[in-house]
């Protein structure tokens, strides 16, 4: 059952007060502007056994995503589409507060929100990943492991999935005599758009981009907005136990479009350089 216990880190009263003082002056504890994101680093193809992989660092938050393509049956009701399965796990390596075991609701939300952004934007053209309609399709697994946490796992994980997909080489499967055969050839994943997730939090009446773990521990509410390459909205998730005014939502939506374009260009640049 979902409960309102707070599992994030504890920020000391003095530190919290200092954060509020900084924010009221339009500054942040780590020296960033309110709307400034942390540096984004991407390393591609780090797992040779995967069909695509990426290690993304957003500040000190670090996520590895790996892709494995197999064949299998299509999902019910989606007979003419390949299957895409995105998962996320926060490893016990990630912070002293993570324990091994089944995923908690925060981790389930993380995986589902990242999945929603990729799926709803239709980044991966699943209709091109069908071998026998209704019977045999590609099953693409994108598994994410959070190695270190320092806030904004939603964006870091989403960028890891997108980078891994952008640089992936899927095996070419063929049907021969009613059996699936791996031809040994490789193909680029059929991609249609680049979704970018942008998260902001509200602390008091101030909106901050790309929160650190410390800032998340002091936040009142969070919003994650994913846009596609046409700067259309594809997915939104408001999180945490506070609200936003209508104006704040509309502003956050506009910021997500502008920032999304910048991050998209950066993702393209970083994935091209390596490829």
């Amino acid at each position: 059952m979902s409960s309102s216990k707070r599992s994030t880190i504890i920020v000391e009263h003095l530190r919290r007060q200092q954060m509020w003082d900084f924010i009221s002056k339009g500054k942040r504890l780590d020296g960033r502007r309110l709307d400034e994101m942390r540096p984004l680093e991407i390393e591609l193809d780090i797992i040779k056994k995967a069909n695509g992989s990426a290690r993304v660092k957003l500040g000190d938050s670090e996520v590895v995503a790996g892709i494995k393509a197999e064949t299998g049956e299509p999902f019910e009701g989606l007979e003419n589409k390949g299957a895409l399965i995105i998962s996320a796990e926060v490893l016990p390596t990630a912070s002293p507060y993570v324990e091994p075991g089944p995923p908690d609701e925060e981790t389930i939300e993380l995986a589902r929100v990242v999945d929603r952004g990729i799926r709803e934007s239709e980044m991966l053209d699943l209709e091109k990943l069908v071998l026998v309609p209704g019977k045999v399709v590609y099953t693409v697994f994108v598994d994410c492991s959070v190695l270190n946490t320092d806030g904004n796992l939603l964006d870091a994980t989403s960028y890891a999935v997108v980078s891994a997909l952008l640089s992936s080489k899927l095996p070419v499967f063929e049907m021969q005599d009613g059996k699936v055969v791996d031809t040994g050839k490789l193909q680029d994943a059929p991609l249609t758009t680049i979704p970018v997730s942008i998260t902001a939090v509200r602390i008091g009446d101030t909106i901050l981009s790309d929160p650190t773990a410390e800032e998340e521990a002091c936040m009142n509410a969070r919003i994650t907005i994913t846009t596609n390459s046409n700067s259309e909205y594809a997915a939104i998730q408001k999180g945490f136990a506070g609200g936003f005014t209508r104006d704040q939502i509309k502003k956050a939506a506009e910021v997500a479009r502008i920032k999304g374009e910048r991050v998209r260009a950066r993702l393209q640049e970083l994935t091209k350089k390596a490829g």
């Binding site: 929603r116 799926r119 709803e120 934007s121 919003i223 596609n228 046409n230 700067s231 259309e232 909205y233 594809a234 997915a235 939104i236 998730q237 408001k238 506070g242 609200g243 936003f244 005014t245 209508r246 939502i249 939506a253 506009e254 479009r257």
Partner: peptide, 13 residues
Amino acid sequence: EVTLLQLDGILTK
């Protein structure tokens, strides 16, 4: 105050 907001599917501005 908006206390829940989710979206799936494509919407222009």
